[in-house]
Structure formats: C-alpha cells, structure tokens
Nucleic acid binder design. Structure first.
Lengths: 277, 277
DNA sequence: TATACTAATGACTAACTAGTCAGTTGTCAA
DNA sequence: TTGACAACTGACTAGTTAGTCATTAGTATA
C-alpha cells in the first residue's frame, strides 16, 4: 500500500514532464528505486496505474470543491471560495493539473477519456448547482454559457501559473474572477449554449452510483485504513446504509468524522449525495 | 512537393485521432499508400514532419486573423469578424485544432514547445492590438486580463464543437462572444494580470524577424511556386526589400497579389509588418 | 535501344517497449 | 537453526519503434 503510493507519486512527476506514453515503466521504477517486478506487484499494468492516478486526484478534487460549495452558508462568499479552492488545489497538485490540461482528451485509450469526461461532468454539475443557487431563475437562459465561461477562466488562468511557475496571489485571483463572473451573470443577453445543445453531447456516462456500489467502496475503504475514528464511523455508516436507524444529525456527524481522511473523501462525497445533505 | 502535402494531410488525420507519439511512421506511410523509404525522402525525421505541420497551420492561422483585424475598417465589426474568423478556421481545420489543444504544451520535445509558444505570443500580439484599438486607453490596466478572457473563450467554446461534432451556428457564437467581451472590457475593475506579471514569463522567444531572414523565406518561396503573378510579385518585393524604389501603394498592391496564395501567406504577413502596413 | 538519372521500395538494424517468471532475499515463527 | 512464506529482483520474451540503404522500377534523353 505504501509502495503503491510511492509509485503513484513518482510516476506523476514523470507524467507531468513527459506525458503518459513518453514515460516508460522502466523510467518509473528507476525513479522509484525499485525493480520492474515490484511495479507489477502493485499494479496489474501501466494503464491501471494511470486510471488509479486519475481516480485518486479527481475524487479528491471534486470532493473538496463540492464540500466547499455545499458548506458555504453566505452566498456572498460562495464564488470567492469556489475559485480560491479550485486554484489552491491546482497549485498544490500542479503535476496532476498539468496532466489533466494536457491529456484531457482522446489520448488513445477509450477508458481514460470516459473517466475524465465523467469527472468533468461531475464538476459541471457542481458549478451548475452553485450558479443556480447564486443567481436563481434570472440566469436560466444563460446558465450553460456561464458554466463554460467559468471553465474557460479556470483553464486559462491555471495555465498561467502551472507552466510558468510564478508567485501566485490566490486572493487577488479569486476576487478578480468573482468580479468577472458576476459581470457576465448579470449582463449576458445573447447565450450560445442552449439546453438543446447541451442535450446533444450529454448522452453518455452520467450513470448514478447505486447503493450496492457505495457499499463495495465502503468495504474496500474499511479494509484499507487502520483502526481509528474514521474506521468506526465507516462501519456505522455502512450499517446505516443497510438499515437506517440513526437520526440525520448523527449521520451528518459521522460524515464529518471521515470527511478529511484522504482515503474516505470519495466515500464521504457519495454518502453526502446519497443521504441528501 | 506534392508528396510532402499528401504525407502532411494524412499524418494530420492520424495525429488528431491518436496524438503524435502514438502514431508511428509505419501507420502514416500505410495510410498514404507509400513505403517507409518514401517518407524519409520528404522528411528527414518524424519530428521534422511535426514541425512542418505546426508551421504550416499556425502561419496560415495567424495570418488570416491578422489580415482580418488589420483590414476591418469599421470598429463595430472588428470583434465579430475576429471571433468569426477564429472559429471558422478552427472548424475548417478541426484536425489541427484538436492537436493544438491537446498537445499544446511540453509534450517531450523542447523545440515543439518553443515553436507553439512563439506562435501563441504572436496571437496574443494580434489580440492585444485589436483590444487597444477597440477600447483605447480606458482598458490599459485590464488589457492582459481581457486577452486571457478572450483566449479562455476561444479554448472552451472551440472544444465544444471540436470534440463533439455538433452543428455550429458561427454567427450566433461570434455575436455571443462579442457581447461577453464588451461586457468585460467595460466593467472590469479588478485586474489580476499586471504588466509586471506579464514581464515575468515573457522573457524567452519573441525575437524579431530580420530582413535577411525574410529574404531567405522569400527565396525559398520563389523556388517553391510555379510561374505566376504571385511569383512575379515576390521577385519585385524581394528587390524592394534590397533596394526600396517603389511607392508604398505599389508595394501594397504587390502584397495583395500574394496574400491568398497558400505558400505566400506567411511571407505576406512578415512583409506587411516589415513595411508597416 | 541504350544510358543516365531520379523515385521508390522494404528488409534490415539497433534500440526501445510492456509484461513475465524462475530464482533470490528478508523476515518472521516454531 | 530450520522452515515457510511473502517481497522482491532482473534477465528474459515477444513485440514495436525510428531510421537506413542496397536494390529495383520508372522515366526522360541521346
């Protein structure tokens, strides 16, 4: 397990520099100081490593944003916190950010694209819920344009510091983008992306996660982590999922317990959605 | 020469699908119906092919936009024409557009990155001149933010139709983005990208093209193209470059003669800048 | 028809790749 | 000390890659 993490860390560095395909398993193992065989004890294949990386960071990423959005009570702070969290994550995990921007689309492997696309749509969902909460029905006609503008800001402004490592004033960046977003939200009259247009490319993916799938993931999580409050909470949450007995406030408390544990973030996100928090 | 074009066309299709590295020379030659040896008669290496592709499309691309911007007399149409031309080009050369978005940064080869970066800066220069002409000194403080927002629009909105091939209403798209751009230009008060910040990452590249370099390129161009008005014009322009004798209006006419010829577009762009049109 | 030249071929090399597996090492418990 | 077991190694296979070059096909001129 610790070895798996080592490989993922070191591989990420190389991928960010050279890209997936240009990086060989040889290079990765050399960079880790382990043998080729040891690599294949942790991962079935090179592809599995890549998928694991995507899952690891994207779940972390979306989970953070989603939590921030859902738990900011004051609407006035919401956009600011959104941008701040986004760029803070990008900055902290700049290696993964580079990969994401670089390799975001059809690199070769159908599975990668679908995975990244699915996560991209989750992110859109989070942005959409934020936009709707902030601006209400007034922006019904222009909400998809707004989402695409926000995504545009995220892309161009993150490149600015991902690829030239400049000193970054996160506070100013967030404030600046909040102003831009508010401006667009208040004054756009000519939307380009209609609801019909969105339907046209939203057919695939977007499948709901079933209770059984969540149970599987909890199970896996329980095995992975050591004896702790998080583990106890997970076990109780699993029972709650099978047979609801606890009151909502208790469940919410249990979710708070596991919220920050790196291995539980994704489960926490799924459960929050499942229980309707 | 005709074979070179064939290889570039067919390679582009494969690159757009699979990326540079995932596409082998074998695949390219098979797709062209030629032998491996024949490939190496046209290009010294696989890298040379890629560089040639970048040059071919980027020069075409920037040249088109630059001409459109410089030759639109009415400021009211300028932004509209800019967006229209950009997305029209992206749409027509969607294969190259995909590659550009995908592979825009450090894929592995230092030379590619520098090339694309240099063209990117040329594009920024064109956008900057347009923004300054449209909004004047009012936007002095926010002009770089404006450029980055425009680039953000270009990125997100082009992905929309590059990767899901939807029906595209170019007119509506351009109008919609014109409105957004004007909104931002008029109301932004909190810029993020200061002039100092720009200086920090603008050190490399951006070298001016010398008269001698232009002469070299003209020479090459004259050899490449058949006997024609374009060729005659080129020869006269070359003489003008060595020894200015013709009046500006005549030079401008000669430039008009070569403007649309695919092999001369880049030369025309360089000469326009050199003669100050 | 003979000659000279260029265009084109594809088997070949050397260097790489992902993935395997027989064998070695290290670490425990008995 | 012995035995059992898991962790680990790196030479190995089978395949792909970019690039070369002796050979051949095609064409134009004398």
């Amino acid at each position: 397990m610790i070895k798996k993490q080592l490989i993922m860390d070191k591989a990420l560095e190389l991928f960010a520099e050279q890209g997936f395909e240009a990086t060989s398993v040889q290079q990765i193992t050399a960079h880790c100081g382990i043998s080729k065989g040891a690599f294949y004890l942790s991962f079935k294949s090179k592809d599995e490593l890549i998928l694991a990386l995507i899952d690891h960071f994207m779940t972390q990423f979306i989970t953070n944003i989603d939590y921030e959005v859902k738990n900011t009570k004051n609407d006035g702070d919401l956009l600011y916190k959104f941008y701040y969290t986004i760029f803070d994550s990008f900055h902290k995990h700049s290696d993964f950010g580079k990969i994401l921007i670089k390799e975001q689309m059809q690199s070769f492997n159908e599975e990668f694209i679908l995975k990244i696309l699915a996560y991209d749509q989750l992110m859109e969902k989070v942005i959409l819920s934020m936009v709707e909460r902030l601006y209400g029905e007034k922006i019904e006609q222009i909400k998809y344009d707004l989402i695409y503008c926000i995504k545009g800001f995220m892309k161009t402004y993150s490149e600015l510091f991902l690829f030239h490592n400049l000193p970054l004033d996160l506070n100013l960046l967030a404030e600046s983008l909040v102003e831009k977003t508010n401006l667009l939200a208040k004054h756009i009259t000519i939307p380009f992306i209609s609801t019909e247009l969105v339907q046209l490319f939203k057919q695939p993916t977007q499948k709901e996660v079933t209770k059984e799938q969540i149970l599987d993931i909890i199970e896996q999580c329980i095995e992975e982590i050591a004896e702790s409050i998080e583990k106890e909470s997970l076990i109780l949450l699993k029972q709650q999922l099978l047979e609801p007995t606890l009151s909502p406030v208790l469940v919410k408390g249990l979710l708070e317990n596991i919220r920050t544990h790196p291995h539980c973030k994704w489960v926490a996100y799924l459960l929050r959605n499942y229980f309707g928090f």
